[in-house]
Design a protein around this nucleic acid. Sequence first.
DNA 1: AAAAAAATTTAGATTAACCTAAAAATTGAT
DNA 2: ATCAATTTTTAGGTTAATCTAAATTTTTTT
Lengths: 220, 220
Amino acid sequence: MQNSFTEENYLKIIHALSGREGLEVSTNALAESTSTRAASVTDMLRKLAEKGLIHYKKYQGVRLTESGEKVAINVIRKHRLWEVFLVEKLGFGWDEVHDIAEELEHIPSDHLVERLDSFLGHPRFDPHGDPIPDAKGNLTEPDYLILTDVEIGEKVRMMGVLDHAPSFLQHLDRAGITLGCTLEIKEINEYDKSASVQIEDKQTLFISLEVSKNLLVQRR
Amino acid sequence: MQNSFTEENYLKIIHALSGREGLEVSTNALAESTSTRAASVTDMLRKLAEKGLIHYKKYQGVRLTESGEKVAINVIRKHRLWEVFLVEKLGFGWDEVHDIAEELEHIPSDHLVERLDSFLGHPRFDPHGDPIPDAKGNLTEPDYLILTDVEIGEKVRMMGVLDHAPSFLQHLDRAGITLGCTLEIKEINEYDKSASVQIEDKQTLFISLEVSKNLLVQRR
DNA sequence: AAAAAAATTTAGATTAACCTAAAAATTGAT
DNA sequence: ATCAATTTTTAGGTTAATCTAAATTTTTTT
């Protein structure tokens, strides 16, 4: 039996909310993320449990089963591969691709995904720096630092973002912060906790705490 | 308001069945093509009429309105562009792409279609020789001949197929008949009306009447 | 540990797209 | 032109995914 568009979205969201520890996800959190009401979530959870895709006991929250995890990771794989396609091949900006990939990720065809993956040269990361699961479903989240954890004077490489909102990504574009660029923390300003950051050994600018919290970087 | 996947399919099928003359399409013909029952078709026709996408009077069959035609042609455009992508970029065979394109054609995003079109180099024809409508919705069906209408001794170029069934396309592959190849009718065999056809000035083989009826060609 | 608050589930509806069976309209044959 | 056959529509139901409102369970506070 095939999973519906809607079922795949629930599984993907459960995966995201339960984190790498596979913690229980609450009905309300799911209602929030799916933009539905808690009662609707309960109905869907009953159905997913029936299909063996989640572990569910009333009032206890949910976790993915192995089989549910497999489905979720495959959806994530497809989403991220399509994002690479949209940016690398079609020339979209990284701020424009999320909604389209949200649709493309549900196109069913293993054959298609594998050919797309080859066509793209088996990319390891999507345009936001998120890792792309391999065909076997292995997904290893690299352990990047958040920019707020970097000391003054350190040089780091920009590796990803936590917030994928178009407005955030456009803000980074305007600041000249792109994936792979070099950042050096010059100082932390006491007044508003903003950071003075030098970008690519060129201009130095203020980065608000809000922004720093959403930048993933790597020491180098 | 947006049209659903299902609505788009009805419009596409009405377009196909009403032909270039825009003839009325019957409820039963639609039931057949959509693999549903006549009663379900009636329900949908009421809805499409409500939305101004078709002209519909009870018991009288349907025609597309201008706005319905526009939607149908856009779906066809997307279908054919995706087919080019699947064959030219991902390396699928022309016999493998129909079902996948059937899904991709419903991904909404004008931006996406236009970028895909550029990426593919604004192709005029899909992998089966069907013309691709332009961004403004102009669709001109070239008037090819059917192979059965070609005289003995004539040399023609293979331009398209009427039947898109994988088994038919695979049969052509095995015979070495591809889009653009040259065919010369050597003789028509009285016994079974099969044609002896020379392919690309190389081997000559028998082509059954069934096959000839589904080959579109052009004099040269 | 009882009461209040919050989270979750149940009950009962709604909508889109389908179904079957029966009724009505159209078409075709004598 | 009438009657039979065919086509189409109507009537009434079903399923997936949603909803609101009410009931229940869990959690938190005092």
